[in-house]
Nucleic acid binder design. Structure first.
Lengths: 303, 303
DNA sequence: CCTACACATGAATGGAATTCATCTATACTG
DNA sequence: CAGTATAGATGAATTCCATTCATGTGTAGG
């Protein structure tokens, strides 16, 4: 087996040697000069030879260093050319995602920049609308993120996006949370209906053993709008916490929750794709990225 | 800045592609097939393309995979050739170390195989003897490990190998340690003198405030022989724990120690080298390796 | 038909790469 | 000439990547 030193160290050496500067190499590789210094030292230990002579504020290659560099620069050039073949702009990948609108604006939108940074070769086309895409007919969509019940279609695979806690929330102007409250206290407040959420106030009342007042309630067919109404002080909204992350973080909404409450956690969002395309790299990369984002979001991805 | 995927993944891909088998690639790279699988998947995600078609018990390159492979094989060949220039056998490095004999046999010897594995390009020449090498005159020695007092020579740098606890030890046949003992109990036992250790029984008695009996004591001018005598049940030896690691681990010796005792910890071993050669890679690699071994040995490297 | 083998995958782990904090030695500038 | 800025060095701490482990799947081969 041909033995090579750690490849990242070789790469670091080549850049530093080519530029004649650890600082410049750090800049090119987006690391600190300290990282360059450590890597070069490590490579020198591996070869048991000095590759640079150090002066104040400068480095110079030794004969051994020059000997190593000439072949390496060619090697990395070749490597770059080989990789570039698979990354050429005229083969830019497009990933078309159709997303439920509130999930798009309240959860995915604030995060999508991270996906673009992690996968710069992929152009994302994000559309939204309340209807789940028919992936058998609409081949322009590769991945759908739906709300409500899991879509069931032949040759379409579905994955739930985890259990979502659906909790009453309202503006702090409406209810002080500095003292303990009960479910009974909640239903005495004005309530807001978020129509598309499969969890309704009736469900919540059943689980928390209180009677739902028969009064008429304002309702919205967008979770984000229901959330906005609650922020405006129009009442208590019952919605998934995922839609209220920034409002909760900023204190614009507070949870009406406590030891005497029972939460409802259901799978209400699903992503789906055609089974035949499941191993498509951009598609599987997005799926994995999304699952990873869910795992690190404040409410976590519960199984 | 030219952007490359993680280089270890590229290397893994090249080997797997060239051999047409994840299992064979695993064997060549000394990792598990699972590692190959993960690396290839990761590379496919980075490029957002499939590089292999998976069949049962076989893989086959896709057109993209073939496109990537041809340049990479040349690149890694070049890289290997460049690295081989600095590792050619006719430039095999020799590192000559002269070591105090007991340290050599009791501490360094059991470990030296690890150095050879970590630095296969270095041929180690290990000599031992009680006299510190005169590094100014004996240029055939590059590093000395001495016992006793720190050598002081012009143009020679010295580094202590840490504080060493020097503790009475004996065979469990001689003294039961299941009940508390006192320093007074120790000096009633037969004592063994390890002559070259700068810590003597007289020192130990002074520190522990007991009178050293005037009886004659067997003495050895090798710490390892003194340790062996103690294992044979000839008496209590006062020596550095470093010389007795395996005996203590095997229960052939026990420590005579306890709350009422005062340990003596001194720097008794030193390594030294010519200042002009301090950055010689093999030499500095050995120094760093030795310091790391001390840090992970049972008594640790105290500063 | 059963066993063995190659690849897949998620969770856990160890170690390598990197950052951070601080230092040294000039080079440069006012 | 003195003070400041810069590049590289180093050790400790932290982060993240590569790898292993455990388990699973789907044949190929005996």
């Amino acid at each position: 087996m041909r033995r090579l030193p750690p490849l990242p160290a070789l790469r670091t050496f080549e850049v530093a040697a080519r530029l004649g500067s650890f600082a410049a190499a750090a800049s090119e590789l987006n690391v600190t000069p300290s990282a360059i210094s450590h890597q070069v030292r490590s490579l020198e230990a591996w070869f048991e030879r000095l590759l640079f002579v150090r002066g104040t504020r400068r480095v110079e290659l030794t004969p051994d260093g020059r000997r190593l560099l000439s072949g390496l620069t060619q090697a990395f050039d070749l490597m770059h050319d080989s990789c570039a073949v698979l990354r050429s702009p005229d083969q830019v990948r497009v990933l078309a995602v159709h997303c439920a609108p509130s999930f798009a604006s309240k959860w995915l939108g604030p995060r999508i920049g991270r996906f673009m940074q992690a996968y710069p070769a992929t152009t994302l086309r994000l559309t939204s609308g309340p209807e789940p895409p028919d992936l058998r007919r609409n081949t322009g969509i590769q991945l759908g993120i739906t709300y409500g019940a899991p879509p069931e279609r032949a040759a379409v695979e579905v994955q739930a996006l985890g259990l979502e806690p659906t909790v009453p929330m309202c503006s702090p102007r409406i209810a002080s949370t500095s003292e303990p409250i009960t479910p009974q206290d909640v239903v005495r407040l004005p309530l807001i209906e978020s129509k598309l959420n499969p969890v309704h106030w009736a469900d919540w009342c059943r689980v928390n053993r209180v009677r739902l007042p028969p009064a008429a309630r304002p309702s919205f067919d967008r979770g984000s709008m229901a959330i906005a109404a609650a922020v405006d002080g129009l009442g208590v909204v019952l919605e998934t916490l995922r839609f209220a992350e920034s409002e909760l973080a900023r204190g614009e909404l507070v949870l009406l929750d406590g030891p005497g409450f029972r939460r409802i956690e259901r799978e209400t969002h699903f992503m789906c794709w055609r089974r035949a395309e499941r191993d498509h790299p951009a598609l599987s990369a997005f799926r994995e990225w999304l699952v990873a984002q869910l795992a690190t979001s404040p409410d976590g991805l519960s199984t």
